[in-house]
């Protein structure tokens, strides 16, 4: 029964997407064009350059294309579904999250799980096409593939908790539009979506080492392309796991505090 209700909650957003074919067509077109543009850009940049920042042309193209695919994992139009924390706080409907037989934290986690699995299916299909077309290189070995998969999973968990913290911010600030935008930019910049972190100055790499963003994308992709050798993978995975634990505890605390701030019908 619990599994059935979990399934029903998790499939809400994917079902919403599947019932809007124009949005899916647009997503497909956008993903295709973005991959072509990004691959062309990095090939063009490497035209007169050999290896730079420890990355050769194929590694850089693979990294950039995988970053585009990975950014697809949680890129759904949640606002249209009218089920964001921001909207519930604005309209006062957040109180229903606390009146249902399902705890709000579990509801939020199940919705996010559904979204991430749906986005992952897109990313996986895109990866298969890119691999077949020779746009991206396959992983160096089975061990690299395994470590990459584990690192990607941990990265998605970190991503989930970071998004959750931003949503929980609404309980105190009522609005989180700016915080979400800051998060998206920070995430894109500090996780290496715009450009692999290896191209950035040393101070920038050091700074991002103290933040959770590089654990979301830069680490798994660097492991995949071989920029982080397998011998260093243990440490990187431990850092990612550390972020998962810290953020899980922090968000748990915030859920507890947030519940005290929800007022129903004026008191």
């Amino acid at each position: 029964m619990a599994v059935l209700s979990a399934w029903r909650v998790a499939r809400v957003t994917p079902l919403g997407e599947l019932h809007t074919p124009p949005r899916m067509t647009a997503a497909l077109l956008r993903l295709t064009v973005q991959i072509v543009l990004v691959a062309s850009l990095w090939r063009g940049l490497y035209h007169a350059t050999g290896t730079t920042a420890g990355l050769d042309r194929d590694q850089a193209v693979t990294y950039a294309v995988l970053a585009v695919l990975a950014s697809r994992v949680r890129e759904l139009d949640q606002y249209s579904g009218r089920d964001t924390v921001l909207q519930h706080m604005h309209f006062g409907t957040i109180v229903y999250w606390y009146l249902r037989p399902l705890p709000p934290q579990r509801y939020y986690a199940l919705r996010a799980l559904g979204e991430q699995v749906y986005g992952f299916a897109w990313a996986l299909a895109g990866y298969a096409v890119c691999l077949a077309a020779g746009v991206v290189r396959p992983p160096g070995s089975a061990a690299v593939a395994g470590v990459f998969a584990l690192s990607l999973l941990l990265g998605q968990l970190v991503m989930y908790y970071v998004m959750l913290v931003i949503d929980q911010l609404c309980f105190w600030t009522l609005r989180n539009g700016a915080a979400i935008m800051i998060l998206i930019f920070a995430q894109n910049l500090l996780s290496g979506v715009y450009a692999p972190l290896w191209f950035f100055p040393d101070w920038f790499i050091t700074l991002s080492a103290f933040l959770p963003f590089q654990a979301t994308l830069s680490v798994p992709l660097s492991l995949y392309v071989g920029r982080i050798p397998l011998s260093d993978a243990g440490f990187q995975l431990a850092v990612q796991a550390g972020w998962v634990v810290v953020l899980a505890l922090f968000t748990r605390l915030l859920w507890r505090r947030a519940a005290r701030r929800v007022i129903s019908q004026g008191g």
């Binding site: 940049l45 490497y46 007169a48 350059t49 730079t52 920042a53 539009g177 700016a178 935008m181 800051i182 930019f185 920070a186 894109n188 910049l189 715009y194 450009a195 191209f199 950035f200 920038f204």
Partner: peptide, 23 residues
């Protein structure tokens, strides 16, 4: 919101600077 405008622009600058210095 003020910060977001600045951060967005700075991210573009950083990206452009990184590309300029590397290539």
């Amino acid at each position: 919101m003020i910060a977001i405008g600045a951060i967005w622009q700075v991210s573009v600058i950083v990206f452009a600077t990184v590309l300029l210095s590397r290539f």
